[in-house]
Simulated scan of single mutants.
Amino acid sequence: MENELLKVFDSEGTLKGTASRAEVHKRGLWHETFHCWFLSKEDGRIFIHFQLRSPDKKNFANMLDITAAGHLSSDESVKDGVREIKEELGISLTLNDLIYTGSVQDEIIIDDFIDRELCHVFIYKIPENTTPDYVFMDDEVSDIFKIELPVFEKL
């Protein structure tokens, strides 16, 4: 995975080439990611769903994160990122099931780990009063937690 090639960009989003995932995070190069937030409506209340990252993850183990997210490799387009939902949650969705909300730049710098992402952000509206049949990959996700949207906004 560290040798996985990612497309790299300047801060304006102009493609500059490719680099390994390890190099991207060591040098702080901008790269693309796919983010998908699951939202549910239950008894008139809206909830946002978070994944609990596996204790086996290299970065941010046992922490809450986007419902499903991941890097886009150098041979992938944004639409290919939907695979992350299947890989992490065991749920098969298509891009047509999602709502594209746009892209944002996100930057995390912790010691020698520099993560500069051009995040393509999507929302999946879970059909009302249903619960997805999550199947977690042991090395990816441990659980899903949901929090009522107004409560999360206050955090």
Rank of each mutant, 00 (worst) to 15 (best):
L95V: 10
K41H: 04
L52S: 05
R45L: 13
V141E: 02
L98W: 06
S40A: 15
N62L: 11
E153G: 03
V104F: 07
E107R: 12
V121Y: 00
I109A: 07
L52H: 02
L15S: 10
V8S: 02
F152A: 12
E107M: 05
K58F: 07
F113R: 11
D143L: 07
E140F: 11
F152S: 07
D115P: 03
W37H: 13
G90W: 08
D143V: 03
N129M: 14
I66G: 04
M1T: 06
Q51W: 04
K16L: 13
T101V: 08
S74L: 05
I123G: 01
L72F: 03
G70S: 05
K125N: 14
I108E: 10
A69N: 13
Y100Q: 01
V141D: 01
D133C: 06
L98G: 00
I99T: 15
A22S: 10
P55V: 01
V24C: 14
W30R: 02
I48W: 05
E42D: 12
D111F: 04
R21E: 04
H49D: 04
T18N: 08
D97E: 08
R83S: 13
I108D: 13
T101Y: 04
H25R: 09
D43L: 07
H31Y: 12
C119P: 01
R116I: 02
R83L: 05
S40W: 08
A68E: 10
E87Y: 11
K154P: 05
V141F: 04
K7Q: 13
L15G: 13
T33P: 08
E107G: 04
L98D: 03
K58T: 15
E87N: 15
A22R: 09
F60P: 00
V104T: 13
L5A: 12
G102T: 03
I99K: 15
V78M: 02
K86L: 13
R83A: 06
E128V: 11
K57V: 05
D65R: 08
G102H: 06
F122L: 10
L89V: 11
S73K: 14
I66W: 07
I147K: 12
Q105D: 02
T94F: 11
S92R: 08
I46P: 01
V121C: 15
K79T: 04
E32H: 09
L39G: 01
P55A: 12
R116G: 00
M137R: 13
R21T: 01
V151K: 14
E117T: 14
T18G: 02
